[in-house]
Design a protein around this nucleic acid. Structure first.
Length: 730
DNA sequence: AAGGTTAATGTTTTT
DNA sequence: CATTAACCTT
């Protein structure tokens, strides 16, 4: 009965069995956080303190929610249904649908994504005659988002929170934007939280209803919560105070998205009588890796403090963290590629290797190298499923069908595929819509009826409007899956991609099919649309082992035997912009990111830095990251120029008074270097020599750039090739 | 309305 | 450098 408890260590068990009252579980990397969370969930149920639907369990990602659901189901031995288990946003959306009228929305409101938001904002800015060159819609969106993260409605924005955007007109724009969203019957992501908090504050009866409903609250990744999320939790937990938050202040890396580390640092003050349990036994990494990571993170000031200790019996064995200095970024890619190959030869699986970079663009050099070596890889991240153009278009069709007043959806699809509708026709529809106070689609119908449209436009609009009505009418009888297929075919949308000869087209058609398949999992189209805007994720069609390439942010929560951490150079990592904008706090967050990176590794971590890096086309000298010096000497094994570079960093720092060469163009103090000459390799091929290439035949070398040669081939013309693909001829 | 040219601009992105 | 959005031309 309670044997699930015996599988836990003492501290984990305390975290599971401390059921009543506020509890903060400080869970270091690899200390069994997920296990504690799910076991605790199960323990509440099995000890009969609550029914499944009386527990509110909140995560940040859909992935985490899914995993938790699965693991709870496994412990219970039955599918976990009817649970209040999901992401902050999904749970809020679910609640908001019940009470939407209190914030001026109908319960079938649309949830807007970033693209829609931007479009609305542009419209608002246009109406207010804001110069969109000086003040970009994107930065207004960020400002509004930050306000929403902090629980600020337009009315709540005090003078201290005012932004200097558009000479202090940001608040007015925010207000106009919210008004526009109400007209569109739409909410953005921030609104889901903000509206719900507003409702709970304004309607004690509704709040009381949720107090009765939820006896226990579980929160994952608490260090990533923003202020509204914190308000929401505090409101819901206010009566019984049975709230358990799990998190790690050392892994807080999303402040730029509004996350407040202070939430977790303040926990004891916020919830009186709170208990804190620290999980410090790490079952993932070797002792060297743990000590290196601990030594690094100890340089941060604002932390609750905890020290990871090895929990694995074999942790004492293992390699030191290796720190490799290389000449330039190309050599770095070659070094990583070579190590991957040799690990593979010694029997390591590619699935157990990852290259973790600070910023997305850094993956490219590694991709290129892995392609040359023929090593399979996957780039994790990139565009998520629902962000892809074809999916967004298809969803817009569905929205336009079931929500006749959804102007944003209508506008998106009205000329996709091309129906000959341009600026002029669009303007006419907007004018009519505003004049008559009706939605765009209705305005289009009116214009069509009046004969105000002609030729191609007339036919195109007519056909689309008829289609929309027909699909809407067919929905009840045929069901949403069939109708979705009809919509895509009859609108000409599928045909459009079939005609498209680009390389992406087949994949897009495949995605559309996947979308229709996914639709079958839902009872109603409405339910599906919610799912799409909140949930849909990249389904990896994994085939065969491959190296993972991703950002450090993307790697949080994952683990690998071998982790490569390239680009540890001042300006790159820690990132210059983070430091410029975030100051000392920014630097601490970068350090936490480094900590996250190191603690992903089970067996070995290879950190590297290059002396020369090409940034925006020109070569620049780079300086080893300060984080390298912060790694305890006993835990690392330094090869290459790292040791020398430590001195050069100090020299450089003093001579440029803290300005490093990698700062942005505008503030750069020194001119970019030409790429420094590099000592010729023994087997180098000199300019002027005759070479032979398998594919291009004979030619003459015209210039040499490290391992890349420019060759004037006799028959094939000028090409750039890698030296390993040519041999000396004649 | 489509195609071609130029200028700006380069983090991280769980929902 | 390389990508993208805004602009200009037919």
């Amino acid at each position: 009965m309670t044997d699930y408890l015996t599988r836990l260590n003492a501290e984990q068990r305390e975290a599971v069995e401390t059921i009543d009252g506020p509890l903060l579980v400080l869970a270091g990397a690899g200390t069994g956080k997920t296990r504690v969370l799910t076991t605790r969930f199960a323990h509440i149920l099995l000890s009969r303190r609550a029914f499944p639907n009386q527990i509110l369990a909140v995560t940040f990602t859909n992935k985490a929610a899914r995993e938790m659901r699965e693991r709870v189901a496994a412990i219970l031995g039955e599918p976990a249904e009817g649970l209040w288990l999901g992401t902050f946003h999904a749970l809020c959306a679910r609640m908001l649908r019940r009470h939407a009228e209190h914030v001026g929305l109908a319960s079938n409101f649309s949830i807007l994504d970033t693209d829609d938001q931007l479009r609305v904002l542009k419209q608002v800015m246009e109406a207010e005659r804001i110069d969109q060159k000086r003040w970009t819609p994107a930065s207004l969106m960020a400002t509004i988002q930050r306000w929403k993260d902090r629980g600020l409605t337009p009315a709540r924005i005090g003078t201290a929170d005012e932004s200097d955007f558009a000479n202090g007109r940001a608040t007015a724009l925010y207000e106009a934007y919210q008004a526009r969203l109400r007209v569109l019957n739409a909410a953005d992501f921030g609104d889901l939280m903000l509206h719900m908090v507003e409702i709970l504050l304004a309607h004690p009866d509704i709040l009381a209803q949720y107090h009765r409903a939820f006896r226990y609250i579980l929160v994952d990744e608490y260090q990533d919560t923003n202020l509204v999320q914190y308000y929401w939790l505090r409101l819901l937990a206010q009566s019984h105070k049975n709230i358990c938050c799990v998190g790690d202040d050392d892994q807080s890396i999303y402040s730029w998205r509004g996350a407040e580390v202070e939430n977790i640092l303040r926990f004891e003050k916020d919830f009186e009588g709170a208990r804190i349990v620290r999980l410090e036994a790490n079952y993932r990494s070797t002792a060297h890796i743990l000590a290196a990571a601990s030594g690094l993170i100890a340089h941060n000031e604002g932390r609750l403090g905890k020290t990871l200790r090895p929990g694995r019996s074999d942790a004492q064995q293992g390699e030191k963290v290796s720190v490799v200095g290389v000449w330039d970024s190309d050599e770095e890619a070659r070094m990583v590629g070579d190590r991957i190959e040799s690990l593979r030869r010694s029997g390591e699986s590619l699935d157990e290797m990852a290259i973790l970079v600070r910023a997305g663009f850094q993956t490219r050099s590694f991709e290129e190298r892995l392609i040359v070596l023929g090593v399979p890889y996957r780039v994790v991240g990139g565009l998520r499923f629902y962000e892809r153009q074809e999916i967004r278009d298809a969803i817009a069709y569905l929205r336009a069908t079931v929500r006749p007043a959804d102007d944003l959806a209508f506008e998106r699809i009205v000329n996709v595929p091309r129906r000959g509708i341009g600026d002029v026709a669009m303007r006419a529809m907007h004018d009519t819509s505003r004049a008559e106070g009706i939605p765009l689609a209705a305005a289009a119908a009116l214009l069509h009826q009046r004969g105000a449209l002609k030729g191609k436009v007339r036919d195109g609009i007519g056909e689309l409007l008829q289609g929309l009505m027909r699909w809407r009418d067919t929905l009840p009888s045929e069901g949403h899956v069939v109708v979705a297929g009809m919509i895509l075919d009859e609108s000409g949308y599928t045909e459009m991609w079939k005609q498209d000869k680009s390389v992406e087209a087949p994949g897009r058609l495949e995605n559309l099919k996947e979308l229709v398949r996914a639709l079958a999992d839902f009872e109603t189209l409405e339910g599906f649309l919610d799912h799409v805007s909140l949930v849909m994720e990249n389904e990896e069609n994994a085939q065969g082992p491959r190296v993972s390439l991703m950002t450090l942010h993307g790697a949080k929560g994952l683990e690998f035997d071998t982790v490569f951490l390239p680009g540890w150079e001042e300006g790159v990592f820690p990132n210059q912009r983070s430091m410029d904008e975030g100051g000392a706090k920014g630097l601490e967050e970068e350090r936490r990111l480094a900590y996250v990176g190191l603690t992903r590794a089970r067996q070995r971590a290879i950190v590297s830095h290059a002396d020369n890096r090409r940034i925006y086309g020109n070569w620049q000298r780079s300086i080893p990251s300060r984080f390298l010096e912060e790694l305890p000497d006993d835990e690392v094994n330094v090869t290459g120029s790292a040791s020398l570079a430590r001195d050069s960093r100090i020299a450089a720092a003093t001579s440029f008074s803290g300005q490093f060469p990698l700062v942005a163009r505008r503030t750069r103090v020194i001119e970019a270097w030409e790429q420094p000459a590099r000592p010729a390799r023994p087997d180098a091929i000199p300019v002027g020599s005759r070479v032979f290439h398998q594919k291009f035949g004979h030619g003459t070398v015209t210039s040499v750039d490290d391992d890349k040669l420019d060759v004037a081939f006799d028959k094939a013309g000028d090409k750039r090739v890698l030296d390993r693909f040519v041999e000396k001829a004649g």
